[in-house]
């Protein structure tokens, strides 16, 4: 019931203007169901994130055994690997939201894509920093141009490009659509980038992906469980953060549309055509 009702505008303005704003902002102005649903889900997801983080960190940092070769430093893995997974997942989800926004012009998809970008960039950043911290004791250097770290680095730049392009336009809807096209092109190129960076791998070193073959994991069960719980914690944290960002973006849009209505008090009905 929000828009016109809480405004102190004269009622005749309210009808004509309200109508026009409904038309224009139907993508912002009708997310009531989302607000209700997300408001219900948010506390639960946040709770799950808190619990899984507590359990996961306890298992990872205290219970799980140190690695035979890497000793205690292997514990960085529990922070590093789920961050890498979530980074890729975020980009996929962002590109999918952009596709939905561009094809069906769905109201919430733009908001979702915009909200995902900084979270995804955050995950790539965590992944890069922990990778570097892990690299030092393992390889004796802070940075190695190994295939997976390099592709996460490029992913970081793709996120950055998306955000910079989004902000480069004066009109946010234009920014959303331009950045959306970029995200979709980037999504097609991510596997190509990954594959070509693998060719760089010919010249470097890294452990092969150890969890991808889940049927016969080369990682021991005592390490696998903490890793999976941490992954769950990251996912729940991601969802919670995403919901918070989307909700605040929608509230921001509402504030903007209220301001617009105030600014547009003067009715803008065009004068009907008449013969000269």
């Amino acid at each position: 019931m929000p828009l016109g009702g809480c405004l102190g505008l004269a009622s005749d303005y309210r009808i004509t203007l309200g109508l026009a704003i409904m038309v224009n902002l139907h993508r912002f102005a009708n997310p009531n169901r989302f607000m209700r649903l997300s408001g219900f889900v948010l506390p639960w997801v946040s709770g799950i994130a808190a619990i899984t983080f507590a359990v996961g960190l306890y298992l990872a940092l205290v219970v799980s055994p140190p690695d035979y070769e890497q000793r205690e430093t292997v514990r960085i893995m529990y922070i590093h690997v789920p961050a890498a997974w979530m980074a890729l997942f975020s980009y996929t989800l962002m590109a999918a939201s952009c596709a939905v926004a561009l094809i069906w012009r769905h109201p919430l998809a733009d908001v979702a894509a915009k909200s995902i970008a900084p979270i995804g960039a955050g995950f790539t950043f965590i992944c890069l920093v922990t990778g570097s911290l892990w690299g030092h004791p393992t390889w004796g250097t802070w940075w190695v141009w190994d295939a997976r770290l390099t592709s996460v680095l490029i992913l970081f730049f793709l996120f950055m490009g998306y955000m910079v392009l989004f902000d480069a336009f004066d009109d946010p809807t234009k920014g959303a659509r331009a950045a959306g096209v970029l995200a979709m092109v980037g999504f097609v190129f991510v596997p190509i980038i990954k594959f070509s960076v693998d060719i760089l791998e010919l010249r470097t070193l890294h452990q092969g992906a150890s969890v991808s073959k889940l049927s016969t994991p080369s990682i021991h069960e005592s390490m696998l469980w903490p890793l999976l719980i941490m992954a769950l914690a990251y996912l729940a944290y991601f969802i919670a953060l995403l919901l918070v960002r989307m909700r605040s973006a929608i509230l921001g849009a509402r504030v903007r549309s209220l301001r617009m209505m105030q600014a547009e008090r003067a009715s803008r009905v065009a004068i009907a055509p008449e013969r000269l």
């Binding site: 203007l17 009905v269 000269l276």
Partner: peptide
């Protein structure tokens, strides 16, 4: 027709129709 540019409503409920040889200013 209605058109919003950015945060401004330029016009709304705008209709016209032109037949052959007609002009609109």
């Amino acid at each position: 027709l209605a058109l919003w540019r950015g945060e401004r409503l330029l016009f709304q409920k705008l209709s016209f129709s032109l037949g052959a040889s007609e002009a609109l200013l």
